[in-house]
Deep mutational scan, measured.
Amino acid sequence: MALNTPQITPTKKITVRAIGEELPRGDYQRCPQCDMLFSLPEINSHQSAYCPRCQAKIRDGRDWSLTRLAAMAFTMLLLMPFAWGEPLLHIWLLGIRIDANVMQGIWQMTKQGDAITGSMVFFCVIGAPLILVTSIAYLWFGNRLGMNLRPVLLMLERLKEWVMLDIYLVGIGVASIKVQDYAHIQAGVGLFSFVALVILTTVTLSHLNVEELWERFYPQRPATRRDEKLRVCLGCHFTGYPDQRGRCPRCHIPLRLRRRHSLQKCWAALLASIVLLLPANLLPISIIYLNGGRQEDTILSGIMSLASSNIAVAGIVFIASILVPFTKVIVMFTLLLSIHFKCQQGLRTRILLLRMVTWIGRWSMLDLFVISLTMSLINRDQILAFTMGPAAFYFGAAVILTILAVEWLDSRLLWDAHESGNARFDD
């Protein structure tokens, strides 16, 4: 018995066209964080690309023209004298008006014999932002004059995390709450300039795509075929072959399989920071003279006294001054041990922890910024005066060393310790 099946006739004509040209192939790229070699397709503007294995951002879609970056830099340069030299806060102490600005706080630190601690604050609040705007201006002028731009481009990517104007702005709020127990506070004209400078700096850093600047100024022929001998440069993120001198053909720094002496430098910085954190938390970090009496505060006791007036601000200072430094030390110690013992479990967790400490590390400088600003506000000789204690130097040095330890660690070593050939990683 035959089955009668109805015929289905399409209502619209289906047209099949042959592909007349070869589909576009992607360029081969190595991930600078996990060293995976993959094919990167062509990316349009405002599109980002991520590593298929570790999800690290390979290409950032946010990109401004150099002219727009230069305009932002010149605007920031105009704001800087007002943000640093004009009063941020006014207080009335014992019937006398006192003005506080950024430069005055750094000068008070240096004047009291601790120039190293003052230079830490100076670099993060004044030096690094000033280098940022002058570097962008150098790129703008240098591109037109045919100057060598490689050193500036190499420095810009590392400079971003040292620009800490946003953290200093939080420190202004913390210092205001600490001082309000002794005097009446009012915002100064410099505060508005400083807030504007923070906003412009944040926007500029978020749109400063150094890798795209490398592509514009020093374009290189990408690798179009897969080759395990391809290496990625950690300076400019170019994937290719080393030249005859073993250097990256684009930025001219040595092109090595792994960062040289990464573990040794990381261990040295980490152990030194552990040693410095002990006096930083045991010795007094601030000293207040009130009517001839002397009151010393460690980091913890200062947080407890701050909690009596504002528990939320005390929580912020606790996280930045105690929780973050010790968390960074514990995480980095764990990561280094996992590399030495070739741990194969929990790779995803370790990668996330490394990215976390990379982002939060700079916030530990908050305590030094609060001390710097408070020193310029309260300084009335023996009637009422505020000065920093010996722990300030140890704390600042420990924070900087932990930042350097994270920067010096080559994250690809975590993958080397893991089993080879993993296309995915999980716990």
Rank of each mutant, 00 (worst) to 15 (best):
L257F: 15
Q244F: 06
H90I: 11
S262Y: 01
M375R: 11
Q29A: 09
G235N: 04
R355N: 11
L404M: 14
I288P: 01
I378L: 08
G61N: 15
F425Q: 13
A73Y: 07
Y241N: 08
W92H: 06
G26F: 10
T15M: 12
M1V: 01
P390W: 05
A100R: 02
C251V: 00
G142S: 04
T358K: 09
M332N: 07
R259K: 06
D227V: 11
T202F: 15
I199L: 11
I98W: 03
E86C: 06
C248E: 00
S308N: 07
A115R: 02
Q47K: 05
L213W: 05
M365E: 04
M155Y: 08
E157D: 07
W140M: 15
A128T: 12
T402Q: 05
R158I: 13
F326T: 11
L257D: 07
M109C: 09
M109H: 02
V16H: 14
L149G: 07
C54M: 00
S39A: 11
Q344H: 12
T202L: 15
L271K: 06
G95M: 07
L337R: 09
Q33I: 13
G389E: 01
T374D: 00
R256M: 11
V170Y: 11
D181W: 01
L93M: 04
I351P: 14
R294N: 03
L354A: 12
H207R: 09
D27Q: 13
H46M: 11
P279D: 06
E21H: 08
I106A: 02
I351L: 11
R225F: 15
Q180E: 12
K342I: 09
G20Y: 07
I311D: 04
R256W: 04
S119W: 01
R150E: 02
I177M: 14
V170W: 14
P284T: 05
L165S: 10
S308T: 06
W140E: 03
I339P: 06
Q104K: 07
A56D: 10
A268L: 01
T327R: 01
L197N: 02
F38Q: 08
C343D: 13
L401Q: 06
G190S: 03
L270S: 11
I311N: 13
A137F: 15
Y218M: 03
A175V: 04
C34L: 00
L69A: 15
V329E: 08
I116P: 06
L282H: 08
Y394C: 03
L156K: 04
S135E: 01
R221G: 10
L79T: 06
E86R: 14
K328N: 00
G389V: 00
K57A: 11
M80E: 07
G113M: 13
A398R: 02
S411T: 10
R216C: 09
A223V: 09
G146S: 03
G389Y: 00
S48Q: 14
R424I: 14
L270A: 08
K229T: 08
V121P: 02
D60V: 10
M304T: 09
Q47V: 12
M109Y: 04
K12V: 10
C248P: 00
L169I: 10
P6I: 07
P222C: 11
W363V: 03
G361R: 01
I91E: 15
Q29P: 08
T298E: 09
P284C: 09
G389A: 03
R362I: 07
I19G: 14
A268P: 01
Q55T: 13
Q180A: 12
N281F: 02
A307C: 07
L335K: 09
D27F: 11
F82K: 07
A115P: 08
A314K: 05
L79H: 12
C124A: 06
I199K: 04
N143D: 14
K265S: 03
V125K: 03
I303R: 00
D243H: 08
E86H: 08
D114R: 06
A223C: 07
P249K: 06
F194M: 09
L263C: 07
A56Y: 11
